[in-house]
Design a protein around this nucleic acid. Sequence first.
DNA 1: CAGTGGTCTAGACCACTGA
DNA 2: CAGTGGTCTAGACCACTGA
Lengths: 239, 239
Amino acid sequence: MKLLPLHERIRTDIESQILSGAIGPGDKIASESGLMEVYGCARMTVNKALSRLSAAGLVDRRTKAGTFVAKRPNEMMVLDVPDLPVEIVRRGQAYRYRMIQRLERAASPHDEEEQRFAERGRLLFVSGVHIADDQPFAYEERLVSLNAVPEIAGADFTSEPPGSWLLRHIPWTEAENRIGAVGASAQSAEILHIPTGAACLTIDRRTWRGEKYVTHVHQQFVAGRYDLVARFGAVQRGS
Amino acid sequence: MKLLPLHERIRTDIESQILSGAIGPGDKIASESGLMEVYGCARMTVNKALSRLSAAGLVDRRTKAGTFVAKRPNEMMVLDVPDLPVEIVRRGQAYRYRMIQRLERAASPHDEEEQRFAERGRLLFVSGVHIADDQPFAYEERLVSLNAVPEIAGADFTSEPPGSWLLRHIPWTEAENRIGAVGASAQSAEILHIPTGAACLTIDRRTWRGEKYVTHVHQQFVAGRYDLVARFGAVQRGS
DNA sequence: CAGTGGTCTAGACCACTGA
DNA sequence: CAGTGGTCTAGACCACTGA
């Protein structure tokens, strides 16, 4: 039985009142000076608790007016997008990667995104398949800017996916994920051992390092073999 | 040109050093007392900046050892899962909802999840289609626990989707989203005006209020007509 | 104009843990 | 044991805004 710091106790007290419905959207919460008396503590302590609730989107604070339960749940869901090898091993399956194609080429003159991406340099294209327990799990195609990551030219991707290499070498990034669905093309259907046109979940991830556009990966998952889970709830990220 | 509070300036200073790669994963950051001298401020001020960076996952703090740039980017992506009518209108399209079926029934004796869900009460089942500019956009099936939300029995869902009604009446929730893909069944294919088996993006969302399991909705989106976007980056949630 | 939240100070004691 | 972060205090001044 570990004792919570006081500001955590105040925060969880208010949080549970909100989540239980005891106080509802728009309701006013006691002021900082009010809570100081209730908990017999300094103002900085209640301020810390309320600031965290505000950062988490559970309350709105307005100078002079007071602190109010936020009108709607935070619409932001937290989505876990893990490294595929890690995810597969975590499921207790054997992970394997097989490269299909690798080539260096210039950016397509017709593709504006590739132009910006390459920054007048060349691009590395790698396609391959992620395999879990000898069953094809996901097909992926990746483009890497050789301008942004020149060292990658010498890396070996016959059995290690470029994503893992990049995670080790380009650690800090900004990323955008786009999640959709598509019917498998003849080519990817053959690789994934499914009928042409069968439904696949797709993830397109673009990654930057600072201002530099590093890589774009397109992954196709056989429908039902992989789901993404996002959760929003009372459990916020710790301090 | 608005002046940032000092703790925000300290936070963004360190944040940009991390995101630019000037300091890398595992590197040690100046201690609180060191930063006090650099910025000529009190310890609480640098503590606030560093605590926020820690909460955002950009640094790890260890008592006695110091503060370090976190080993890997936070794998949590922020996913925006908005209300469908709002989303469609925001795209500049006309929104319409058409109910297909509505019925009240007992929980299936063979479905353990439904049993827990209903808590020995009855369930409301509503299916319908979301329409954007006269084109079917998403098919949805929803179950609502009448035990958790008795008021919903009297609501009219012929042209308003139950999700919007619930947002207005059951405002604070915990939710889990599961995102996948599926080939359209004969029934949903007809409703969505697509061939049977065509790829669809699916979202399954389960919502609680406190401990009470309120609703489960299954939505199918025609592939390509709707993508989910998740982003991780330098821009953290404000205070 | 009174009360609120936003910010900041200059201290304090503590637990922890690497050297 | 020295230095670190975690927490907390008891003040302070400020901008803002609803009554």
